[in-house]
Simulated assay, not measured.
Amino acid sequence: MEKINAVITGIGGYVPDYVLNNDELSRMVDTNDEWIMTRVGIKERRILTEEGLGTSYMARKAAKQLLHKTGVDPDTIDALIVTTSTADYQFPSTASIVLGKLGLKNAFAFDFWAACCGFLYTLDVAASMIQSGRYKKIIVIGADKMSSVVDYTDRSTCPLFGDGAAAVLVEATTEQNVGLMDSHFRTDGKGLPFLHIKAGGSVCPPSPFTVDHRLHYLYQEGRTVFRYAVTSMSDDCALIAERNGLNKDNIAFVVPHQANMRIIEAVAKRLDLSMDHVMVNIEHYGNTSAATIPLALWDNEKRLKKGDNLIFTAFGAGFVHGATYVKWGYDGSSVHEAK
Rank of each mutant, 00 (worst) to 15 (best):
V149S: 07
V168H: 00
D17T: 11
A143Y: 04
A172P: 07
N309P: 06
R39G: 05
A241S: 14
A172L: 11
S334W: 02
G189K: 15
D144I: 07
L246Q: 01
E242P: 07
V125G: 07
I311S: 00
G222P: 03
Y57F: 15
I251W: 08
G191R: 06
N21E: 13
M58C: 11
E51N: 12
G332T: 04
V82T: 11
A6T: 01
K137N: 13
I81N: 04
K145T: 14
I311V: 08
N309W: 02
G54Y: 06
T76Q: 08
L271A: 03
V225N: 04
W113V: 09
V15W: 01
A291T: 05
S156N: 14
F119I: 07
A266G: 02
S202V: 12
E337S: 12
A290R: 05
F315W: 13
G71I: 14
V72P: 05
T324L: 11
G100R: 05
H257G: 03
Y325N: 04
N32I: 03
A127F: 04
N260T: 05
E171F: 07
A167F: 02
A166I: 07
K339D: 06
A126Y: 09
T9R: 11
V211E: 00
V150Y: 10
K145L: 09
K302Y: 02
Y89M: 06
Y18T: 14
S234I: 15
R303N: 08
E51M: 15
L239W: 06
N21M: 12
K69S: 09
L273E: 08
I264M: 03
R186M: 10
L53I: 02
K145S: 09
D154L: 09
K101F: 03
C158Y: 00
A268S: 08
L102V: 09
R155G: 12
I36E: 14
Q131G: 15
W113S: 03
A59G: 12
L215P: 01
I240C: 11
I251M: 08
P206S: 04
A6M: 01
D235E: 14
I139Q: 04
D299N: 08
A114N: 09
Q65F: 02
A338E: 09
N244F: 02
V168D: 00
G118D: 06
I240K: 06
M37Y: 11
W113T: 13
R262M: 10
T173S: 13
V225R: 00
Y152S: 11
A314F: 15
G12A: 10
E265S: 13
L48C: 02
T55W: 03
A199H: 04
K105M: 05
L271Y: 05
K105W: 10
D188M: 15
F315H: 02
L25K: 00
S85H: 02
K69T: 06
L120S: 05
F312Q: 10
G179C: 04
D78Q: 13
L273Y: 06
G179Q: 03
G162E: 10
A62Q: 02
V280H: 13
A291V: 07
W35N: 05
T174P: 00
R303V: 06
R303G: 04
L297S: 01
R27F: 14
A115T: 06
L20F: 10
G71Y: 09
K248M: 10
K302L: 09
R243E: 01
G118M: 09
V267M: 01
D272I: 13
A114W: 07
F108C: 06
T9V: 12
S274V: 12
D249G: 05
D235P: 15
